[in-house]
Amino acid sequence: MKNKLLTKKVAEFIQGHIDPVHRPFKPLAAQLDCTEADIVSIIAELKAKGIIRRFGAILRHQQAGFTCNAMVAWQAPLGREDETGQKMAAYPQVSHCYLRQVPGDFPYQLFTMIHARSAEELQDVVNAIVKSTGIDNYQVLHSVKEYKKVSMRYELEDWLKAWDEEESR
């Protein structure tokens, strides 16, 4: 890691938005007193290390026409959790699919976020999943009110510290 502070600053910046201009990193380079090439190489390094999962345009689902969304939790068949989860994940309308540790009074371990254009399409997806997995014990949890939806801004402080220790070993 060349420069810890620089890496931290670049990581903060790229969690925001990059302006579509000829030289988008020019203002940041001036502010951090480094070259634009330095910034690009730090981004490349973070991507190579897997810290950045993806770099590019992030779309807004709602605007793309997916207005009917629900969290659907399913009772996972014992011993067939992975197979079932993968089957559910294959649906294009399923954006997230997890197996979770759940409390005894909520025995639905497989969680899917389903995005559809209408209530009918949502029901179609649920029906298709029921048919293909054989699971008919599930809970559809519609959102009633959105209280908060923000992107997490991660601090790389701890990770940089751990990285330093690893390098000095």
């Binding site: 990581a11 969690q15 938005h17 579509p20 810290i51 793309a64 991660y154």
Partner: peptide, 18 residues
């Protein structure tokens, strides 16, 4: 048009220990 929310990085939270 709001099709793109932003251009930037998605951090893998687990990779940095979150």
């Amino acid at each position: 048009q709001g099709v793109i929310r932003r251009i930037g990085a998605i951090i893998d939270a687990r990779k940095i220990g979150y």
